[in-house]
């Protein structure tokens, strides 16, 4: 059995760990609240955007736009959203496993796909396995604003327009609730699944429908990327919160068993001492 001192030290170490994990849990709770607020304030923009885009793209007139048309696929883009830091349970590994398996199934050679990595964990995962990473961004703040993501979103959409990819998928953790996040695959480009809400308005276009689509569709795709990022951030904080809560609970459990064996060891030592004294006293008689 370990000595009293050893057990005492382990108890102290575990206590300190549990303090840290508890603090991290609380930080994540605060960040999750903010992330939920951010996601909520994005909703009006997205809804309006969807409404207008659907109205124009599906509405009267026969305007077609390269971003709306599916073309033969020679190369597929995968935009993968992960976090910059670990300690978030299975958050990152879930997404990365899904992407990895999908790519293995769908493609024979690395020429058929390219990866856009958001987040350091994803970036190093793909680099280590020699996957072609064409764009990456790391070090995004916990509460990203649209300006933070604009450049990479812009470039990602640009790569589709100039024909580098023929389709683009997004992979991220969709936030369901604090204990549930789901890996989601979403086809971003071409924009073939526009929501049709039936409430059509016929607009005048200034200057013309085509030119408006030229401006509008890239913006729409960029906002979809931003929306996914906000969703992923909320999931990240939730996943980290749950992971840290579990860690704290485990630490407490460990402290309990350690305290028990500490008390036992102490009692054993006392018993032994008494036996020795009694034996000593008996020997003197």
């Amino acid at each position: 059995m370990a000595s009293l001192r050893d057990i005492k030290m382990r108890i102290n170490a575990t206590k300190k760990t549990s303090q840290i994990t508890k603090a991290m849990e609380m930080v994540s709770v605060a960040k999750l609240n903010q992330a939920e607020i951010n996601a909520k304030s994005f909703v009006p923009y997205m809804e309006k955007m969807q409404e207008v885009v659907a109205n124009i793209a599906l509405g009267a007139g026969n305007a077609t736009h390269p971003m709306l048309v599916a073309r033969p696929v020679k190369k597929t883009g995968y935009l993968v959203i992960t976090s910059d830091r670990g300690l978030a349970g299975a958050y990152n590994s879930n997404v990365l496993r899904t992407v990895y398996q999908t790519i293995q199934q769908r493609h024979q050679s690395p020429d058929e796909y390219a990866i856009i990595a958001i987040g350091r964990i994803g970036l190093s995962f793909f680099k280590k396995r020699n996957f072609p990473v064409v764009l990456n961004i790391t070090g995004l703040p916990d509460q990203p604003s649209f300006a933070d993501i604009k450049e990479i979103a812009n470039k990602a959409v640009g790569l589709f327009i100039d024909g580098t990819f023929d389709e683009l998928y997004m992979y991220y953790n969709h936030y369901i609730n604090t204990i549930q996040q789901e890996v989601t695959e979403r086809k971003l480009l071409p924009l073939t699944d526009l929501a049709d809400n039936k409430q059509r308005t016929t607009y005048e276009f200034e200057p013309s429908q085509e030119e408006i689509l030229d401006v509008l569709l890239p913006q729409y795709a960029e906002s979809l990327i931003y929306g996914a990022l906000l969703d992923a951030k909320a999931s990240e904080h939730a996943a980290r919160m749950t992971a840290m809560k579990n860690a704290t609970d485990n630490a407490h459990e460990l402290i309990r068993t350690l305290t028990l064996s500490y008390n036992r060891a102490r009692q054993a030592a006392i018993t032994q001492e008494i036996t020795e004294i009694v034996a000593g006293a008996n020997a003197l008689q």
């Binding site: 207008v52 124009i56 016929t202 607009y203 005048e204 276009f205 200034e206 408006i212 509008l216």
Partner: peptide, 14 residues
Amino acid sequence: ELGILSGHIPLVAP
């Protein structure tokens, strides 16, 4: 330049 008052017809412009 565009000036819009109440009752304008539906319009979209960048």
